[in-house]
Amino acid sequence: MLTVALDAVTTAAMLFIIAAGLLIVFGVMKIINFAHAAFLTVGAYAALVGAHLNLPWFLVLPLAFVAGALCGGVTEIVIVRRLYKRPLDAILATWGLGIVLGQLITLMFGREVQFVQAPISGTVHLFGADYSAYRLVMIVAAVILGLLFTGLLNGTRLGLSTKAVIMNEMLAQGLGVDSSRVRLITFALGSGLAALSGALITPLSSVDPNMGVPWLIGAFMLVMVSGGSLLALAGSCAVLGTLQVLVSTFVNPILGGLTIAICAAIVLRIRPEGFARA
C-alpha cells in the first residue's frame, strides 16, 4: 500500500516535470507544441553528450536546458511566430518540426538505444519499504520546479508581463508589454523545460530518437485539463497520476497507460474548463 502511494506521488512528479514546459507555452500562446516530445529528446541527448564529456550531473542539467531553450527560441522565430493567428497550423508545423528533429537526431546519433548512468542509484529505506532513490529525487525536482516557476511568475517583471499576456493580451499590449518578446521567451523557456525534463528522466528511461513520444499524449491531456494554470497542473498530475497508478496496479497496466487520456477527455467533456478554477 505504501509502495502504491509512493508510486502515485513519484508518477505525479514525473508527469508534472514533463508537462510543465508544455503548459506555459499553452498558457501564453494558446497552442499545443507538438514538438514538445522532440525537445524532450533533445534534452536527453544533451545529457548523453554531457555524460560522454564527463560533466558532473549538476552541469548536465543546465546544458540540457540551454540546448532546449536554443532550439525553442529558433523555432519561435522561424516557425511559431508566423502562425499565432492559425493555431491549428501551428500544431502541424510543430509536428513537422518534431519529425525533422527526430530524423536529425537519428542521422547524428544513430537509431540505437543509448545509455546514461544515473547519478543516484539503488534504493532508500523509507517508512518500512525499499524504494527507488532516483524516483524520490523526482519529487524534489518537481517541487523545486514548481516553486521556481511560481517565483518567476509572481516575483519578476517578466513573470508579471507573462501573466498579463495570459490574462488579456490586447490590454497587456496597451499597457506597453512587448508581447512578442514575452512569447519568444516563453517558448524558449517551455522548450528548455522540455529538454530539462528529458535529461531528468534519462536515468529511468532509455535514450533513443523516439523516447519522447510515449509521454506526449499524457502531457497534452494534462495541459488541456489544466487550462494554463500551474496549480491546476499540479492538481491534475496528482489526481490523474494517482488514478493511473491505481488502475495499473489493480486493473492492468495497459489500461493504466490509457487512463490519463481517457479520464481527461471525459472530464473535459463534462466540465469544459477542466480542473482550472476548480
Binding site: D7, T10, R135, S248, P253, I254, G256
Partner: peptide
Amino acid sequence: EEYLPMDGSDWTSIISK
C-alpha cells in the same frame, strides 16, 4: 503476469507488484 504497451516506458506499477 503483466504487460505494458509496446512503446510503454513506465514500469512503476508492475515493478511494485
